[in-house]
Design a protein around this nucleic acid. Structure first.
Lengths: 117, 117
DNA sequence: TTGCTATGGGATAAATTATTCCCCTATTGC
DNA sequence: GCAATAGGGGAATAATTTATCCCATAGCAA
């Protein structure tokens, strides 16, 4: 793995949630898994801008943080399904709030974001 | 500024909120400004792990996204105060939800995060 | 004159995160 | 034998984000 050089701080709740949720695609992964897209290939289809590699990596991190579980069926070709853990499910309302805010202010945000370079 | 090479996508609400909230210190900046710590030096004291420079940069981005306003008093030495805009204030409940989740699961999160490297 | 004040920002290095490319598994079907 | 399948991961490199350093402003006080 990568050994960090700048120590992380885990003081407050914001630090903590940041630690498990940062990562460009993690939130979307959780969201789509929750919607029932459990297999890696489906997830890739849902998130075409992410490379296959990063999705794997971030899924593994989510797994390491007990937010998702991975079930491997011993068949060939392999079949894999991810599911949210109970812990992971508690994040759904949180993600929902984030998405809702973005949706509520979509127009405005889009123009604000596009205006600066 | 920095000219991005990978285009951003602004499809859903999650993309949008991510765009204005990503940045290592932005959430905390908003939070502390909301708590009444309006001056740069105070914010620096509150967030000692961030360099002065990044805070300036991220504050400027927040300003560009209409989440905060900056008031410069024409005195020497300079005096500056940041405040949340009405738009910025709508983010406070969202941030609150994030922090709450982190606090609710603090124990567990800390050990999960520390175990992997 | 020198230093202090609070704030801003350019330049460059370092850290972190994500992308690309390419190879691997073991079976079924042509 | 050879491609197709669904998924995994190493290595090198590119992209992006943060950090470090250091200089600048303009009065007032020692």
């Amino acid at each position: 793995m990568y050994e960090r050089k700048i120590p992380l701080n885990l003081n407050c709740g914001l630090d903590l949630i940041g630690e498990v949720l940062y990562g460009k695609w993690k939130i979307r992964l959780l969201w789509f898994i929750n919607e029932g897209h459990q297999r890696p290939s489906e997830l890739q289809r849902k998130i075409p801008d992410a490379s296959r590699r990063v999705l794997n990596i971030q899924l593994k991190e989510l797994e390491g943080h007990d937010l998702v579980t991975k079930k491997i069926y011993p068949v060939v070709p392999p079949k894999v399904e991810y599911s949210l853990t109970d812990f992971g499910k508690t994040l759904i309302p949180v993600i929902s709030v984030l998405g809702q805010w973005g949706d509520d202010h979509a127009e405005r945000l889009r123009s604000l974001i596009l205006k600066d370079s």
